[in-house]
Design a protein around this nucleic acid. Sequence first.
DNA 1: TTGTAAGCGTTATCAA
DNA 2: TTGATAACGCTTACAA
Lengths: 331, 331
Amino acid sequence: MRKRATAKEVADAAGVSKWTVIRAFTPGASITEESKRRVLEAAAVLNYTPNLLARSLATNLTHQVAVFVDDFANPQKLPFLETLTERLQAEGLVAVLININNHFDHVHALLNADQRQVDAVILFGTAFRNETLSDRQLGRGMPPMFVLARDSQIDGVPAVVCDAELALRDIVDHLYERGYRRPGFMTGAPALSTALRRRQHFIDFWKGKGVDEIVILSADRYSAEAGAGSVRHYLNDIDPAARVDVLMCENDILALGAMDEIRGNFGLRIPDDIAVVGFDNYELGGASCYGLTTYEQPRIEMVQAVIGMIKGRLEPETVTLPGKLVVRTST
Amino acid sequence: MRKRATAKEVADAAGVSKWTVIRAFTPGASITEESKRRVLEAAAVLNYTPNLLARSLATNLTHQVAVFVDDFANPQKLPFLETLTERLQAEGLVAVLININNHFDHVHALLNADQRQVDAVILFGTAFRNETLSDRQLGRGMPPMFVLARDSQIDGVPAVVCDAELALRDIVDHLYERGYRRPGFMTGAPALSTALRRRQHFIDFWKGKGVDEIVILSADRYSAEAGAGSVRHYLNDIDPAARVDVLMCENDILALGAMDEIRGNFGLRIPDDIAVVGFDNYELGGASCYGLTTYEQPRIEMVQAVIGMIKGRLEPETVTLPGKLVVRTST
DNA sequence: TTGTAAGCGTTATCAA
DNA sequence: TTGATAACGCTTACAA
């Protein structure tokens, strides 16, 4: 068992009380230069650094934020995690990454995060209906929660999202201008899909343009494979004359899988036979072999908004931020 | 400030001492059924759960493992993070994700992780030469460290890696069989590149087959863009007759970028004009528009090995695990 | 400016 | 089985 030096030991070595040692490590504390020097010297010799755990126990602040994630198939999670951890760290916070899966569900995770005394919980791209936790449990005693990159389904839990209405308006406008008139939409996991609101807005904007028939394809997960499977199923059954002329997929990874299937296994051309649109602006979508038209979420602004709420600079309320359309060759 | 119930409060409510409350929450502690029932009842009413922070302070065990990451461009990090968090959680551990960047370097991160009393540190795909930390600091007082998915550069710090020698032997054998004789190798970030040992083994195995001239391309980072830029630079200058007939890239994301450039901007065919090999078996590499031949790291086994060492089941020593060659159409 | 006492919510150990 | 004392390493409030 490794043994760390404590403030008391440094105090003895420096010939002061342990509180003076604490002061030497507290910015702005009242302490003479001389004492501070002696303390820091002794601390250096003993290799002392403050125990943040003990500090957290005393201050009731861990500077830890739990980040819940349940979908690792979407490569777009990675740049988000990068931005999130970087900004958290810049604020003196640290991310505890919690994998929500069959063995460790939201309730488990939330209870655990609470027991670990995290300062806040970010539901990143995930949310849950509160069926197991009582309102009392959720309201009192639980750390403040925030939903990032999807709608919140819990009263009082704010969400930070990309403006889906604006996004889909831009997308549908673009597709309409390009002359497409037989739109299709591919959803991912049903539980997540509605909360993203992409499908509904897609349908509504097309209706606003007088196009009432929107084909819905559904993949069961958000992965390239699921996207490919979904479109294969559709193309196998459909009469080519009745085929959609543009397919919007709920996110890029579905779209990339769909494109591979459309071209590779059915020999159709994109966008001539079917145009494809994604969502997220994942780096590889821009590759020349895809050229996927997509929509970029305002990642940095979204992350900053959540952190602002956590730090108390911003009101904890649902925020909707505008992203931007990225047009490439797939439309 | 939210207020949690404490063991003392539950004790008062249940009419027992706080130690009895603790026992009710300690599996296998000696306590009568009756006491336990009363305690759990009172705990339910007060919504009490043990404070893991206080427990950690008392036991000197946080059940937290810091995971250092410094390259978020490689989508392969995601499945690794998924496996890692899942397995850690299965063992009652939790991952603290630390983003190593210009503002928060290894030394900062290590010092911070140490102060937070994490049980272990995993350097995931990253490592550093110990220039700033004294040996005493590293040896004593620091949490046990492990390097995952690359070589360790610190004495006494074990690494868990995919067997690069075996991997490159398989790859070179495959390429040789296919008839390629003018190999090239693309490295990524220099600091990481040598520690992966892929280039050296690539060169050595070719030499073993009598092929001494190996072209080296270098990308400065591990990203599709960097891969594309590197191969563009090369193809712009080279006489087509002297061109490599196969290009191995240090990882898939470089390879995908390279493939896009080779086909999209230079109009060359893969594998006819240039064959391409990657490393990692990233999902999209298998897409029909790439069909990238690559090598799959034994992700689950690697993660299990690190965790085994952390939990003390395995000797903390460098482990080299075999992966498997995935042949597709790019070769 | 410095030292003291009390407290944060647990666990470890021992006595009853 | 239960209660009590001490300890974990720090912070806060207050007195010297």
